[in-house]
């Protein structure tokens, strides 16, 4: 057999024209949907980020035509402000930190859980998965407000912690409206998005591989690090992306649980659009956020692929 390594696969090379037509017929509607509701708005945002705010909110036209001919009205001022004002740098870094920490906590928390579910007996497995999905049945905001109550100063959790701190002679803390509360909220809402892709990956692993590893002298620990984990990297990347990107732009969780100390870049973007009514500046902020998210996931995917090659 002559198989060259890494040869590109062309699954559609032998397709008939009918099959090609079917492919377009099936993928056309979702592609059109994405183009209209994702690609075009993103381009509008990108353009808007170079404009001036309109007199009553929105943004002023980027170009217009009058008797003197075409006029272009672009500015780099929004970006200059973002890069020169330290406040925004701090907010971006803080959001990045929250998103990274959320991803990390979710990974550490979700991995053992996904593994347990994936290796449970089949009937039991569906029940456990159902339990992971159950929170989605109630509204996102309601669940966040529930955390407000759980972390509130009158709740058992706060009182318990403060009682212990009091015994140690440490000043009482306020759990709510703090970075801690934001972290709790973010991890809580993101956890299922890490569990599900990880489970989907782990569930497909051939149990014979683990038996082979044990048989050939690997301890349970080596089995995990040399077989299970490397094979689960695609699931880890999928889960990390699903958690990291929304966490980076989160605004409802910090808005409700964070108070003034837990503010994230998403809150600022929201304020620019809704309160300050400076759309171009809000657009510039969100374009940078988008670039950050793309960059971070790109690096993660690249690092993971490198990591997997270095294994073994």
């Amino acid at each position: 057999m002559s198989i060259s390594r890494g040869a590109p696969k062309r699954p559609f090379s032998s397709m008939t024209s009918r099959a090609r037509l079917a492919r377009w017929a099936l993928s056309g509607p979702p592609l059109t949907f994405l183009a209209i509701f994702f690609l075009i708005p993103t381009l509008i945002m990108a353009l808007a980020s170079f404009g001036w705010p309109g007199r009553e909110g929105g943004f002023s036209p980027l170009w217009y035509h009058d008797a003197a001919g075409w006029h272009f009205d672009f500015t780099l001022g929004n970006y200059r402000d973002i890069f020169t004002l330290r406040l925004f740098l701090v907010l971006y870094l803080r959001s990045l930190g929250y998103a990274l920490a959320t991803t990390g906590f979710c990974l550490v928390g979700a991995y053992p859980l996904s593994l347990v579910i994936a290796r449970a007996r089949v009937g039991y497995r569906n029940l456990l998965l159902l339990l992971v999905i159950v929170p989605f049945w109630s509204n996102f905001l309601i669940r966040i407000y529930a955390w407000m109550i759980i972390l509130g100063p009158q709740a058992a959790l706060s009182r318990g912690i403060n009682a212990v701190l009091g015994l140690c002679g440490i000043r009482a803390v306020n759990l709510l409206f703090s970075p801690f509360a934001v972290m709790m909220g973010l991890v809580y809402v993101s956890l299922p998005f890490m569990i599900l892709p990880l489970y989907a990956n782990l569930e497909k692993h051939d149990p014979a591989l683990l038996e082979a590893a044990r048989d050939l002298g690997a301890s349970a620990w080596s089995c995990f690090w040399r077989v299970t984990f490397p094979l689960s990297v695609p699931g880890v990347i999928a889960g990390a992306t699903l958690v990291f990107v929304p966490a980076l732009g989160a605004f409802a969780v910090p808005d409700i649980l964070g108070g003034t100390r837990g503010i994230m870049i998403g809150n600022v973007i929201e304020m620019e659009f809704l309160q300050a009514r400076d759309w171009p500046f809000g657009a510039a902020l969100s374009i940078i956020l988008t670039i950050l998210a793309l960059g971070a996931t790109g690096i993660a995917a690249w690092a993971a692929r490198r990591g997997i090659k270095a294994y073994g």
């Binding site: 591989l209 038996e211 590893a213 050939l216 301890s219 490397p230």
Partner: peptide, 26 residues
Amino acid sequence: VHTIFQSYALFPHMTVADNVAFPLRM
């Protein structure tokens, strides 16, 4: 005692050499 499995159970993410080296690495 080692086993040869019906499905061979080769580690798909490792090269042939890494597969063969596995017991020695362990």
